[in-house]
Structures are given as C-alpha cells and as structure tokens.
C-alpha cells in the first residue's frame, strides 16, 4: 500500500516536481493562515489588533489574562471551561461504555442482522438535530434539565454514539478472528478475550474514537445555545460572549478563541491518521 507514484523523474519533470511541492507547501500555509493569525492576534494589544494587519508587534499576554478574569454578571471562563470539561468528559466515557460492547456485537461476534443494526445507528446521524430540538427543549423544561450539565451529557452521548459505534466496529473488525479463536482454545472466557487479546489491539483505535467524540462535543454549539444559554454554558458560548459592541474586542476574542480551540487542534493533530482510518476506512476496505 504505497501511495506515492513518483517513478524515476528526470529533467523538466524534476522541476515540475519541485513546483508541485512548493505549491503543496503554499496551500498548507494558506489553509493554516487564519488559525495562525488568530493565535498571533491573541498576543496583540487591542490597538495593534484593531488596525491594519500587523505581523510584527510587541507581544503581550494581557488579553489572555483579561478573558480568563471573572467579570460579574458575565459567564466566566472558569465556569465555561468546567461546564465543557464535565459535559465532554462524562459524555465521552458514556459513549465508550455503550459503544464498545455494541461494536463487539457488530463485528467480532456479530448478531444476525448486524448490517441492519449498523445502518440504524448511522441513519440516526441522517436525522437533522433541528427536527428533535423542540421536543428535547420541552422534555428538558419539563424535567427541569434546562441549563444543566446533565442535559448536555445525555445529548452529547446520543450525538456521538453512532459515530463511535461506526468507528469502533471498523477497528474491531481488524482483529484477526484466529486470534480470538486461539485465545478461546487457550482457555479464556469472554472477559479474558476482551481484556487480553482484543483491547490491546484496538487500544489506539479506542483512543482515536474517544478523541473524535471529545472534539465534536467540545466544539458543539447548537444544543448548548438552545438548551443551556445561561447557566451551564459551555466554551463555544463563552467565546461568542467576547464579541463586544462597546469598543475593541479583536485581540480579546482571538485570545479566547485560541484558548478554546488549541487543545482540540493539538489533540486532532496527534490522532489524525487513526481518526481518518476509523472514519473512512471502516467503510472502504
């Protein structure tokens, strides 16, 4: 499985190769530039940020200090981060607890109609969330769950579960069947097979899946703003709160955006290869 199909190149084709490489680098920087600019602006003063674009300036961390400072009456950074943290962490744990056995039952010891069941899980992703939001709001209001972390935990679990089942199934299917049979013959029970044979092999896939759930839940805005606009607000809502109508805010907004996105970006960088394999390659082998 080698992707590069560059054969021996000579003369002008070599030059063409260099040009293509240069183009790839250029495209890379183009795509990255807005993120770079956001991080850069976070270290500017408002005066520097609200003016003609500046690449060189005296960096300051004052915006980061300011946006993380509590202001009475407003959603504090600490509150938003802790709300997001708990909603994301608990929902991801729940997703994994539900999805691991389900993926097992769809791949290693498949139920009879495993294709249909997998389709059902995926088809729930086809259901636009807007079609469910009004009843969810009503239910949440009736159960006094509006503006609580609990409602987000439940919904983020439901939101990420189909994706996790889909990805985990594809990772589980990569476990050679003989390996499980060997473990069976070696005298392990189901738990032994899972802990000593399957999990060590799928562990990287589990990590990538969990990470993707974290990313989606962390970035989620629609449900949060519908159901938890006041208390229990999460980081995306906090970021939008830094848009101010009274005066300059670009540097502060950039600092807040940087704080909100950087953890997820770095996590995504680390897991990029496996994430895409679980997402796409599970379907196409």
């Amino acid at each position: 499985m080698s992707g590069s199909n560059t054969g021996p190149v000579v003369g002008e084709r070599k030059l063409g190769g260099y040009l293509l490489s240069a183009l790839a680098w250029f495209v890379g920087f183009l795509f990255f530039f807005p993120v770079f600019w956001m991080v850069l602006s976070g270290f500017k003063t408002e005066a520097d940020a609200n003016g003609p674009p500046k690449l060189f300036f005296e960096p300051t961390t004052e915006q980061f200090a300011e946006v993380t400072n509590d202001t009475t009456g407003l959603l504090s950074a600490g509150e938003a981060f802790s709300n997001s943290f708990w909603a994301v962490a608990i929902s991801t744990v729940l997703v994994m607890l539900l999805a691991i056995p389900a993926a097992y039952a769809l791949s290693i010891k498949p139920v009879d109609k495993w294709r249909d069941v997998l389709f059902f899980f995926i088809s729930t992703k086809f259901l636009p969330i807007v079609a469910a939001i009004l009843p969810l709001w009503i239910i949440a209001r009736e159960l006094n769950l509006l503006n609580t972390r609990l409602i987000l935990i439940i919904l983020y679990t439901a939101m990420n579960l189909p994706l996790a089942v889909w990805m985990l199934r594809s990772f589980f299917s990569e476990v050679p069947r003989e390996l499980i049979e060997a473990a069976q013959i070696d005298g392990t029970n189901l738990r032994g097979q899972i802990t000593s044979v399957i999990l060590p092999i799928v562990a990287p896939g589990l990590a990538a899946t969990a990470l993707l759930c974290v990313i989606f839940a962390w970035n989620e805005f629609f449900l949060a703003v519908q159901l938890n606009p006041i208390e229990g607000s999460t980081v995306p809502i906090w970021v939008t709160g830094n848009v101010s109508t009274r005066g300059n805010f670009l540097a502060k907004l950039s600092a807040a955006s940087t704080l909100a996105t950087l953890p997820v970006i770095i996590a995504g960088w680390l897991a990029q290869k496996r994430m895409i394999r679980g997402l796409a390659m599970g379907a196409i082998k």
Partner: peptide, 20 residues
C-alpha cells in the same frame, strides 16, 4: 463443549500469535 473445555491445542495457518 466449548473449546476451552476440550484440552486441545491448535496451530493456526497464520499462527495467531498475540502481537502485544
């Protein structure tokens, strides 16, 4: 009887060694 109760050992075509 399940495999673990048969007191047998098996060698597989692709060996099925536990990779970790």
């Amino acid at each position: 009887a399940p495999p673990q109760d048969r007191d047998i050992a098996m060698v597989f075509q692709n060996y099925a060694l536990y990779p970790q």
